[in-house]
């Protein structure tokens, strides 16, 4: 869930600053996870260190993608940009086995911060330390980023770029730098999400973050891409629904196959009711 919320923010940031849905978000974050796992398994570095290195690498990859590709392709229309990000998926998926020896393994075991058997016992509920750390990181990161967005000069520039890139440029904002840093931050957030995510699941291939990414996009549609907080709330709603339906499935086991389909259906009905998203505004385009 934490991973999902972080990934949602990353997707939203890129949607706002680059006007495209970044399909490569999942694989960029997977690179971060692979760097971390590779370093840790080969050299035995402590997890904090490799996590930071992984996040940094994802940041650099994000910036590189913007500088090398999107800066040169500004005049490509929105469909073209979407397709470029789809092409990026193919490239990264193709590159991963050449760089990381871990990727040749069948499946890498789960990679938690603290071993999964350790945790807090409160009454009947057992909470893993790993989960607590994940939640803490998510809350700190999100709080920091929203504070920066609202209060800092950087946040103001990002919001200005998001609302209108050309006018923002006229007002003396270096939109190129803002966009590049947004891509970097999105990559870094994705990497954090991926590293939290692989604490519980096995890292089998580059598509490890696909489900998270789909949920992130759905959250964006549900909350409406018009605001920064809308998608984050959307993500909370989607994961809440997942847990609810999951509870329902405990009583009716035959439903469990249909779990994600049910959640998807509910989200789609909500979107049918509010096409601009729960927090969205209708955008009117002048011709």
């Amino acid at each position: 869930m934490c991973a999902g919320i972080l990934a949602t923010f990353a997707v939203t940031l890129i949607f706002k600053t680059s006007y495209t849905t970044n399909f490569a978000q999942g694989v960029i974050s997977a690179i971060g996870a692979y760097v971390a796992v590779e370093l840790s398994m080969k050299n035995g570095y402590p997890i904090w260190m490799v996590a930071i290195v992984g996040v940094l690498v994802a940041f650099i990859v994000g910036v590189a993608i913007d500088v090398l590709i999107f800066r040169n392709g500004r005049y490509v229309n929105s469909l073209g940009k979407q397709i470029i990000t789809m092409g990026l998926i193919s490239i990264i998926i193709g590159v991963i086995p050449f760089i990381f020896s871990v990727a040749k393994m069948e499946a890498v075991p789960a990679f938690p911060f603290i071993h999964l058997t350790q945790g807090l016992q409160i009454g009947e509920i057992f909470i893993q330390y790993n989960t607590i750390i994940g939640v803490a990181i998510t809350i700190i990161l999100l709080a920091a980023v929203f504070l920066l967005l609202q209060k800092s000069k950087w946040g103001l520039s990002v919001r200005a770029t998001a609302s209108n890139e050309i006018v923002a440029g006229m007002m003396g904002i270096n939109t190129k730098v803002i966009t590049a840093i947004s891509w970097g931050i999105a990559g870094a957030f994705g990497a954090v999400a991926a590293i939290i995510y692989i604490g519980n699941v096995t890292l089998s291939n580059g598509y490890v973050m696909t489900t998270t990414q789909i949920n992130a996009f759905l959250a964006g549609i549900l909350g409406g891409f018009a605001t920064f907080h809308g998608p984050v709330f959307g993500a909370v709603i989607i994961y809440g629904l997942n847990i609810l339906v999951g509870c329902l499935c405990i009583h009716m086991p035959e439903l469990s196959t249909w779990k994600s389909a049910i959640v998807y259906l509910i989200v789609m009905l909500l979107v049918l009711w509010k096409p601009q998203g729960l927090f969205g505004k209708k955008l009117v385009k002048k011709v």
Binding site: I69, G73, I83, I84, G87, S90, I91, I93, V95
Partner: peptide, 15 residues
Amino acid sequence: TFITLFCGILVIVVV
């Protein structure tokens, strides 16, 4: 995966 990589590069270059 090499062919996937090749396909991705071609797509971006063409677009």
